[in-house]
Simulated assay, not measured.
Amino acid sequence: MSSKKLGVILYGPPASGKDTVTQALKELDARYDQFARLKVGSGRATGYRMGTAEQLRVLEAAGDVIYTNSRYGNTYVIDRPGMDSAFEAGVPVVHLGQVDGIRALVDAYASDWAVVLLWCSQEITVQRSAGRGDSDTKARLAAWQATREDLDAHPDMRWDLTVDTMATAPEESARLIGQLLAQRAGATTA
């Protein structure tokens, strides 16, 4: 890949494969790594930087909040210092379930973002959620519906790649995303 800042945004409902595809990307190339959003709240800490309401206020006062959303009783934050660190470390993979979050990130943080739609049915969300032992499958189904409505509300949203994770293996998804970024890197050096 080139020296140009390349990043990946994975959009999709809960259990659409964002974690699994990110792991496959990391196995493909160690420079890929999930962006750990700041999480203000409780519950699962894996994949997040746990923070406080005071930390969030400080980031907001400094103008360093790119995007926030609330779900499952928590606040999730994409922050400029965190994003800077992620790009210094490699190629960040940002997980989002809101088109407004994609637009905020693309508009506020200069990079060549590959925006990928990962999709699965509600039935697969239920199966995958149960399979991984989620205790909040009902909330994840509500989030699936909210993601579907969000997608329907933004028919003008353009995707660099769309992947049906019911039909495409994580390794193939990662290969396609890697190929997309390699093409972009090549285009910047040609």
Rank of each mutant, 00 (worst) to 15 (best):
P81D: 00
S135M: 11
T52L: 14
A45V: 11
D64L: 04
L28P: 06
V99L: 05
D29I: 00
I66Q: 01
N74P: 13
T52W: 02
A86G: 08
G133D: 03
D134G: 05
Q34Y: 13
G73L: 15
A130R: 07
A130W: 13
V99S: 14
F87H: 07
C120G: 05
G97R: 15
E123Y: 00
T46Y: 11
D136E: 07
S16E: 06
R44F: 03
V115N: 01
S111V: 10
G63E: 15
T125H: 02
A15K: 11
R128C: 00
A36T: 09
S42R: 08
A104D: 10
G51D: 02
R128W: 04
G43D: 01
T137W: 00
I78G: 02
M50Y: 01
I78A: 04
W113S: 13
Y48I: 00
Y76I: 02
A30S: 15
S16I: 02
V91N: 01
V77Y: 11
Q23S: 07
D107F: 08
S135C: 14
V65A: 10
H95R: 08
G51R: 02
G133L: 08
Q34I: 03
I66A: 12
A45G: 14
Q34S: 08
A130K: 03
F35D: 04
R132H: 09
R132A: 04
Q127E: 08
T46L: 03
A104N: 12
V58L: 05
S129H: 04
N74E: 10
S85W: 14
G17N: 02
G73N: 01
G73Y: 06
L117W: 10
R132N: 03
V115K: 04
A61K: 13
I102C: 04
W113N: 12
A36W: 06
V115Q: 14
G17E: 13
Y11G: 15
R31A: 12
R49P: 09
R37D: 08
D84Y: 06
A86Q: 01
Q34T: 05
Q23D: 07
G82H: 15
A86E: 08
V99M: 12
I78Q: 11
E54M: 13
L96H: 03
K18E: 11
A45M: 09
V77D: 03
S111R: 04
T137A: 03
A24F: 10
V21H: 01
